[in-house]
Design a protein around this nucleic acid. Structure first.
Length: 283
DNA sequence: ACTGGCTCCTGAGGGC
DNA sequence: TGCCCTCAGGAGCCAG
């Protein structure tokens, strides 16, 4: 379940290994991902110009279009010599010049791969942004324009739980279940409060915490030993730095009271009923 | 316009 | 030890 920090770490790990290289061939070993994988015959022969990211989508910008990859919740990428045997669940391989093979490994197949062509002279990322999977996405959490005022405006009149609200990708992208739980804990806001009832001050703290928790996880990803060339393309979580996620019943790190575990929108939700209140109170 | 629920899939983990 | 069962989760989609 790569969250945004893992996707960004993957991007940074893979980019220097393949950017600038020409694609030789594609192997689709299992087209049945979340949507059937269908890539054009014109893709081999194109040079890879850059690897960027929008939300949890990785964008491989080629000369004539953009390959849009999503890692779902069990996907990972590795770059290996082409002669390396395939593993079970290696569904897609992009073989670049120099016999480097970029492989998508995804046991649960919630991931996806799409091709978005770019007209000659057109701007690739703009074109990718028009893809149906990307066109409705909200702001990036690390964008400076993502702040309390933005969240407050978007939350006006909305009655869903604030946790579900910040996990809504049309509002802000990349806030998965783990980091939603963590950010709400750090902000002192109870996950079940209606989004429209959280104050501007509450959203100012929350937006800052979201940025911090995602930003520091990306930093950690950069400093954690993670090898995209050998076996370990699969980023692990940093459970030791998580305050509440997967810790229902354990003592609250702040007050010691047992953390409460509930389900919200079908997702595991953990919070401290003493430290997390309707408006939050931690600056 | 909103909201909550369903869905895809496999591996991990619990129970016995 | 080993088998069987349950369940988690990203996010698009749909029904109410």
């Amino acid at each position: 379940m790569p969250e945004l920090p893992e996707v960004e770490t993957t991007r940074r790990g893979v980019e220097p290994l393949v950017v600038g290289k020409r694609l030789r061939s594609i192997v689709v070993r299992e087209p049945r991902l979340r949507w059937p994988v269908s890539l054009p015959d014109s893709l081999p022969g194109q040079r890879l110009l850059s690897v960027t990211r929008r939300a949890k989508y990785l964008l491989f910008v080629f000369e004539e279009g953009v390959l849009i990859l999503h890692l779902g919740m069990s996907g990972s990428l590795r770059v290996l010599p082409d002669e390396t045997p395939y593993l079970k669940h290696d569904h897609l391989a992009l073989i670049f010049e120099g016999e480097r093979s970029l492989r998508l490994h995804d046991p649960r197949r919630f991931g996806s791969a799409h091709w978005q062509p770019v007209d000659a002279g057109g701007e690739a990322l703009e074109a990718a942004g028009r893809h149906r999977l990307l066109s409705g996405l909200g702001i990036e959490p690390l964008d400076p324009a993502f702040d309390g005022a933005y969240l407050k405006t978007r939350a006006r009149g909305r009655r869903l739980a604030v946790k579900n609200f910040i996990m809504d990708g049309t509002v802000v992208v990349g806030v998965g279940n783990i980091y939603a739980n963590e950010a709400l804990f750090l902000a002192g806001i109870r996950p079940t409060v209606q989004a429209g009832r959280v104050s501007l001050a509450g959203y100012e703290v929350l937006s800052r915490r979201i940025r911090e928790v995602l930003g520091s996880a990306i930093q950690m990803g950069g400093t954690t030993l993670r090898d995209f060339v050998n076996q370990d393309g699969n980023p692990g979580y940093f459970r030791q730095v998580l305050n509440v996620y997967d810790r229902a019943g354990e003592p609250c790190p702040l007050c010691g009271q047992p953390l409460k575990g509930i389900r919200l929108g079908g997702r595991a939700t953990v919070y401290c009923s003493k430290c997390q209140r309707a408006q939050g109170f931690r600056p």
